[in-house]
Computed example of a mutant assay.
Amino acid sequence: MALNNTYDARPVQQETAVGAGAQVLLLSLLASAIGMGTAGRLTGLAFAFATWAMLSRALRRSRLPSFGPANRVTLGRATLVGGVTALVADSFRSAPPVSLLVGLTAVALILDGVDGRVARLTGTSSPLGARFDMEVDAFLILVLSVYVASDLGPWVLLIGGMRYVFVAAARVWPWLTAPLPPSTARKTVAALQGVLLLLAGADLLTRTANAGVVLLALVLLVWSFGRDVRWLWRRTSRVGEAPAAVARRLVPQR
């Protein structure tokens, strides 16, 4: 008897569509509440479409049997991040209500500690879920750094861009893609980035104090990335090959 190896992606795809619909609804509510301009609306819609498209593609490739409760929490966070993205884009036209920006960001940061716990409790952890969670976190940090940089200067963008620079560097030096060991310090530094950037953008401290808070975040992030890069370099050296040789071996040849 032949096994049925067909995979029906429709159930999980429907959930991504619901997420996109929730994003559009949130944008509509924000637009009516604060009179959001064209830039904010279009940026929010672009975020919603990009999230739906990339997540749909990833789900088809992973062939997950169900979307899972943890991914639903992360999708909810992505919806909030889309709202924050729209507000930040609109801030170049007029300053958004700080309380609204802080509220959406704070809930997104709080939920960051929920989806992983839900995944462990329900036994629904997956590589896709971990990657989805990471990408939402990274983009939120990027958006917050753009918002804070509008007041403190472009140097703040180093915080939001560092992870993407690391990903780009890994295309040149594939030894950077090796898995890293679990690290409480790495997780703590990553979590602090959002908290410190939110504090700097909440208009609670003086400009000098905000600069100090963001500088602390940047120093911690540089230390964390530097520590990981050093570990990856030493790991590559221990296997008996120079990193450049490993890179040449791993890069596909035409």
Results as ranks from 00 to 15, higher is better:
residue 63 R to Q: 03
residue 103 G to A: 04
residue 251 V to S: 08
residue 204 L to E: 07
residue 43 T to R: 09
residue 137 D to G: 00
residue 63 R to N: 06
residue 167 V to Y: 09
residue 29 L to K: 13
residue 20 A to H: 06
residue 222 V to C: 11
residue 92 F to Q: 06
residue 249 R to G: 13
residue 148 V to N: 05
residue 173 W to N: 06
residue 90 D to G: 13
residue 213 V to Y: 02
residue 251 V to D: 09
residue 69 P to D: 05
residue 18 V to C: 13
residue 187 K to N: 02
residue 61 R to A: 09
residue 48 A to G: 04
residue 219 V to I: 14
residue 185 A to D: 04
residue 196 L to V: 01
residue 214 V to E: 04
residue 190 A to R: 14
residue 205 L to V: 11
residue 148 V to R: 04
residue 205 L to R: 08
residue 12 V to S: 15
residue 204 L to S: 09
residue 55 L to R: 12
residue 245 A to S: 15
residue 15 E to R: 13
residue 222 V to R: 13
residue 157 L to T: 01
residue 38 T to F: 10
residue 138 A to Q: 01
residue 90 D to W: 11
residue 33 A to K: 15
residue 36 M to T: 14
residue 193 Q to S: 03
residue 150 S to R: 10
residue 166 F to D: 00
residue 29 L to C: 15
residue 193 Q to G: 03
residue 112 D to S: 11
residue 182 P to M: 05
residue 61 R to C: 11
residue 217 A to Q: 03
residue 253 Q to V: 04
residue 162 M to K: 05
residue 30 L to T: 08
residue 106 A to H: 01
residue 238 R to F: 06
residue 195 V to F: 03
residue 212 G to V: 05
residue 13 Q to F: 15
residue 216 L to E: 14
residue 196 L to H: 00
residue 34 I to W: 10
residue 118 V to K: 01
residue 171 R to P: 10
residue 117 R to A: 03
residue 251 V to G: 09
residue 195 V to K: 02
residue 115 D to L: 02
residue 205 L to C: 03
residue 69 P to N: 06
residue 70 A to G: 00
residue 141 I to D: 06
residue 146 V to M: 13
residue 12 V to C: 15
residue 81 V to S: 08
residue 149 A to T: 03
residue 83 G to V: 12
residue 95 A to C: 03
residue 231 W to L: 10
residue 224 S to V: 10
residue 174 P to G: 01
residue 52 W to D: 12
residue 179 P to R: 02
residue 219 V to C: 06
residue 44 G to P: 07
residue 2 A to F: 10
residue 250 L to M: 15
residue 61 R to Q: 12
residue 62 S to N: 10
residue 71 N to L: 00
residue 7 Y to K: 02
residue 197 L to Y: 02
residue 56 S to G: 08
residue 173 W to T: 07
residue 196 L to P: 01
residue 191 A to I: 06
residue 140 L to C: 02
residue 206 T to A: 04
residue 44 G to N: 11
residue 48 A to W: 01
residue 33 A to S: 15
residue 123 G to D: 05
residue 127 P to T: 08
residue 199 L to M: 09
residue 50 A to R: 06
residue 222 V to E: 10
residue 229 V to M: 12
residue 92 F to W: 14
residue 126 S to N: 10
residue 239 V to Q: 13
residue 243 P to Y: 14
residue 83 G to N: 02
residue 21 G to F: 03
residue 108 A to H: 09
residue 144 L to F: 01
residue 215 L to M: 13
residue 163 R to H: 04
residue 111 L to W: 08
residue 63 R to A: 05
residue 83 G to S: 08
residue 186 R to S: 04
residue 205 L to N: 11
residue 160 G to T: 05
residue 203 D to E: 15
residue 65 P to D: 08
residue 136 V to M: 04
residue 127 P to Y: 12
residue 219 V to P: 10
residue 251 V to E: 14
residue 2 A to M: 12
residue 245 A to D: 15
residue 103 G to Q: 03
residue 205 L to S: 08
residue 89 A to Q: 03
residue 64 L to W: 08
residue 28 S to V: 15
residue 187 K to V: 04
residue 157 L to R: 00
residue 20 A to L: 13
residue 66 S to Y: 15
residue 190 A to L: 09
residue 62 S to G: 10
residue 214 V to P: 06
residue 94 S to Q: 12
residue 56 S to P: 14
residue 126 S to D: 11
residue 177 T to C: 11
residue 156 V to G: 02
residue 170 A to C: 07
residue 104 L to H: 00
residue 121 L to Q: 08
residue 76 G to Q: 01
residue 1 M to G: 15
residue 192 L to I: 09
residue 16 T to M: 07
residue 170 A to W: 10
residue 187 K to H: 05
residue 232 L to C: 04
